[in-house]
């Protein structure tokens, strides 16, 4: 139902066409006004981001990781923002789930260092070239040993029960619960 209502945003189309010329390996669509979306293969991400930076996408807002358990892939979304064009761009890449490995984009966007560490800490995505990847950060040592991560296959609730030894509390349903 998203397609009918989509009013064509000429300026976005033009930006996407300009970027796609420079990066043929990617596909780009305009989701809606001020929202562009690009799909880039994992190994070409650095070149794409370099061209994006050159063409007006000054800011890298966030690197979010999405865990597609069924497809066995982890999706990294580089959220860019261009002040000159006044638009967001979601650059998506897919990595195999078991050993997710990609090269760092620190030299293009220096801020990426923290976001990459965050993704590594919770989604075990290794970014080659980021010096501070192994540095102890948010997770406490006890959690790190247990292997806490935000991946879907990790039973978070079980871990919380074991950690805080509050067994009875979680079995009740919404109706009867014990403070």
């Amino acid at each position: 139902m998203a397609e009918e209502v989509k009013a064509s945003w000429s300026k976005g189309e033009e930006i996407v066409r300009m970027l796609l010329e420079k990066a043929p390996y990617a596909e780009g669509t305009v989701r809606r006004e001020r929202r562009l979306e690009f799909k880039v293969p994992a190994d070409r991400i650095v070149d794409f981001l370099r061209t994006a930076k050159a063409n007006g996408f000054e800011l890298l807002l966030q690197i979010t990781a999405v865990d597609w358990l069924k497809e066995g892939e982890i999706e990294l979304v580089y959220q860019l923002f261009s002040i000159s064009h006044g638009t967001h761009a979601m650059v998506k890449t897919r990595l195999p789930r078991d050993e997710a490995r990609i090269s760092t984009v620190m030299d293009i966007y220096p801020v990426a260092e923290t976001y990459e560490r965050d993704a590594h800490e919770f989604f075990k995505v290794t970014f080659e070239g980021n010096p501070k990847l192994e540095m102890p950060w948010i997770l406490e040592d006890e959690d790190r040993e247990v292997g806490v991560s935000h991946r879907k296959d990790f039973d978070m609730l079980g871990y919380v029960k074991r950690k805080y030894k509050l067994l009875d509390r979680f079995d009740e349903d919404k109706e009867n619960y014990v403070i």
């Binding site: 406490e140 871990y159 919380v160 509390r169």
Partner: peptide
């Protein structure tokens, strides 16, 4: 007192 809205969070004390 009881973890409040973070009742099921791994990183909040209950």
């Amino acid at each position: 007192l009881n973890g409040g809205i973070y009742w099921d969070a791994y990183n909040a004390i209950k």
